[in-house]
Amino acid sequence: MSGTSQGEGARLRLRPPRNQVDRRAVAWWRAGILVFWAVPVLVLVVLGILLPGARFWLLAPAVAIMVVIVPLAIGMPLWWYRVHRWEVTDEAVYTRTGAVWQEWRVAPMSRIQTVDTQRGPLEQYFGLATVTVTTASAKGAVKIPGLDHELASDLVRQLTETTHATPGDAT
């Protein structure tokens, strides 16, 4: 290891944010992957049934996709669930997301411009919501996916109140 810390003594690390996302997020992510890949698999299977001549060449990719996707759909959401965490303090919103690439983001209250929630059809089914916090930076948005939707709307209210109370011109 080459990264010995210079000057500060002990090594610095970002601690994980305090809160996990809702447990239902695992099922939501799984459903998302399966729904997304079900479309090409179904098309291939239906064509395979209708076209006996090309059956092997249509069903083989369908099987191949399933062999790859089903383990991913089981495994990846568990990994995401372990990584995805969030925290809101009086000063900032702090998140950790990703899996292979992990990302820690912090946006201070004084720079927050908008706070929104989104709920796609699957999220509605699972009673979840995604909170997006944007700043004046085109690339500075902080997203917290997979929150319980009531918690999410409370969070939006709390964030909106705090940002109104915090001075700053947001750029």
């Binding site: 990264g3 990703g98 690439w101 912090v106 947001a170 750029t171």
Partner: peptide
């Protein structure tokens, strides 16, 4: 106006990370 730290599993093994300053100006980051 914010920081993003990003680390792939390869970077994690080497003890590296990519630090991004977000800003309202220029390319945004």
């Amino acid at each position: 106006i914010g920081w993003t730290a990003r680390q792939s599993i390869f970077q994690r093994r080497k003890g590296l990370l990519t630090l991004t300053a977000t800003t309202a100006a220029g390319t945004g980051a």
